[in-house]
C-alpha cells in the first residue's frame, strides 16, 4: 500500500532566508543565500556522510484552511514517489532544481526577505533532504 500522507509544519520564516545571509557549504565555502546554485546543494550532499538529496515534485498547491497566510504544498518525494504535504507560509522559499528560490507568493518573499524568487508551480522539482541511513 502507498505510505500515509504526512503533514509537516515547519517553524515560521527562518532568518537564513533573508537576502545577504551567509551560508556555509559542506566544503566550508561561504556564500550568500541569494547566490546559491543547484550544484552547491548537490556537492554539499555528496560530501555529507549523513544527508542525501531527494527530488520532490510539486503535485498540488492549495490555500490553507487554517490561515490565508499559509499554503499546503503536496510533494511526490524520491524514487518511491511518497506523498508528503507541507503547510508553509505563502512566502516560504523552496529551492527548485536548475531554477533557484521559488515560493507560492514570490512577491511577498521579495517584499519580506528581499530574496529574489520565482513562482512555485505544479511540476517544479524541489531539493529536499533525506538521512542516508534511514533505510
Amino acid at each position: 500500500p502507498p505510505p500515509p500522507s504526512n503533514t509537516v509544519v515547519p517553524p515560521s520564516l527562518p532568518p537564513y532566508f533573508i537576502k545577504g545571509s551567509i551560508i556555509q557549504l559542506a566544503d566550508g565555502e561561504l556564500k550568500r543565500v541569494e547566490d546559491l546554485k543547484t550544484e552547491d546543494f548537490i556537492q554539499s550532499a555528496e560530501i555529507s556522510s549523513e544527508l542525501k538529496i531527494d527530488s520532490s515534485t510539486v503535485e498540488r498547491i492549495e490555500g490553507s484552511h487554517t490561515s490565508p497566510n499559509f499554503a499546503v504544498v503536496q510533494f511526490s518525494v524520491g524514487e518511491h514517489r511518497a506523498q508528503v504535504s507541507v503547510e508553509v507560509l505563502v512566502e516560504y522559499p523552496f529551492f527548485v532544481f536548475g531554477q533557484g528560490w521559488s515560493s507560492c507568493c514570490p512577491d511577498r518573499t521579495t517584499q519580506l526577505l528581499e530574496l529574489p524568487c520565482t513562482k512555485l508551480s505544479v511540476g517544479d522539482v524541489c531539493i529536499s533532504l533525506t538521512l542516508k541511513n534511514l533505510r
Binding site: P3, P4, N6, V8, P10, P14, P15, Y16, F17, S21, I22, I23, Q24, L25, A26, L30, V33, L36, D40, F41, S44, S48, L51, I53, D54, S56, F75, V77, G78, H80, A82, Q83, V84, V86, F94, F95, C126, I127, S128, L129, T130, L131, L134, R135
Partner: peptide
C-alpha cells in the same frame, strides 16, 4: 554575523514511514 549551515535551508520531506 551568523553563519548558517547549507542543510538548514533544505526541508526534510521524506516520510517517516517508508515502503
Amino acid at each position: 554575523v551568523p553563519v548558517f549551515p547549507w542543510h538548514s535551508l533544505v526541508p526534510f520531506l521524506a516520510p517517516t514511514q517508508s515502503d
